[in-house]
């Protein structure tokens, strides 16, 4: 086993560069998916907080579906569904044949939709955690609604949201491994390729696990920093 460790190195015949590059793809995919999810999450949260019935129902349906259905199923929906839609559009413009959706784009959209459903709940809870007095004070200062949100509410909302967002981020990072099933060469897929061509699956999957673990550890630290930073001046009992 140990004499095979050179397979993970950076010298000739080593897979180190390929694995690190693939880990970079995993981080990129997760980050873009998470950011897209922040947009969906903000829309979902504002729907959930709305007093009108239609936005509230839509937000609740969105959250229920994408938090309750296996992520793998959602990924298949966007991969196959997206390709079918794209092919139909291409055919309408006169190009025949099948058009596949790029797997990175599909992955970002799928992770965005899934993590958006979780982020919506985080933002909604964080909004409700901002004290009523803050809204009253903003109104007393005659701030417009946009100013109130931008200058008073959102900075405080983020402080409440960070622990929840950190959880969603960890979820996203682990979900990104599922994007390997649609052929994107991220960390999981690259280690499968390595395992297949060297016939050392144990070594490669251990390496993949270790890299995921390290990425999760480093990024978790960033969230903890952000938490300390945003709660400056707040007394913790």
């Amino acid at each position: 086993m140990l004499e095979k460790l050179y397979l993970l190195g950076f010298a000739e015949g080593g897979w180190g560069t390929a694995l690190l590059g693939a880990a970079g793809v995993t981080v990129l995919l997760s980050m873009l998916g998470f950011l897209l999810g922040a947009v969906f999450g903000a829309v979902g949260a504002s729907g959930g907080l709305s007093s009108r019935r239609l936005p509230k129902t839509l937000a609740s349906v969105y959250g229920t579906i994408f938090r309750g259905v296996p992520d793998l199923l959602t990924i298949y929906l966007f991969y196959y569904g997206g390709s079918v839609a794209l092919t139909a559009i291409a055919n309408a413009f006169g190009s025949g044949g099948f058009v596949g959706l790029p797997s990175l784009a599909t992955g970002i959209i799928a992770i965005g939709i899934i993590s958006g459903a979780y982020q919506a709940e985080v933002y909604r809870g964080a909004y409700l955690a901002v004290e009523q007095g803050q809204f009253d004070a903003a109104k007393a200062l005659a701030l417009s609604r946009v100013q109130m949100l931008r200058l008073v509410i959102i900075p405080q909302l983020l402080r409440h949201a960070i622990p929840g967002l950190s959880n969603v981020w960890q979820l996203v990072l682990k979900d990104s491994a599922l994007i390997s099933v649609i052929g994107l060469v991220e960390l999981m897929r690259q280690s499968q390729i390595g395992a297949g061509s060297t016939r050392e699956p144990f070594l490669f999957y251990i390496a993949a696990a270790a890299l995921y673990f390290v990425i999760a550890g480093i990024t978790g630290q960033i969230f903890r920093r952000a938490e300390t930073r945003t709660s400056r001046g707040i007394l913790h009992l």
């Binding site: 960890q170 990072l173 682990k174 979900d175 990104s176 491994a177 599922l178 390997s180 999981m188 499968q192 395992a195 699956p201 144990f202 999957y205 251990i206 993949a208 696990a209 995921y212 673990f213 999760a216 550890g217």
Partner: peptide
């Protein structure tokens, strides 16, 4: 700290 998919692959393959 690691994806479930990696765990399944590690055990199966």
């Amino acid at each position: 700290g690691t994806p479930l998919l990696v765990q399944i692959f590690l055990i199966y393959y």
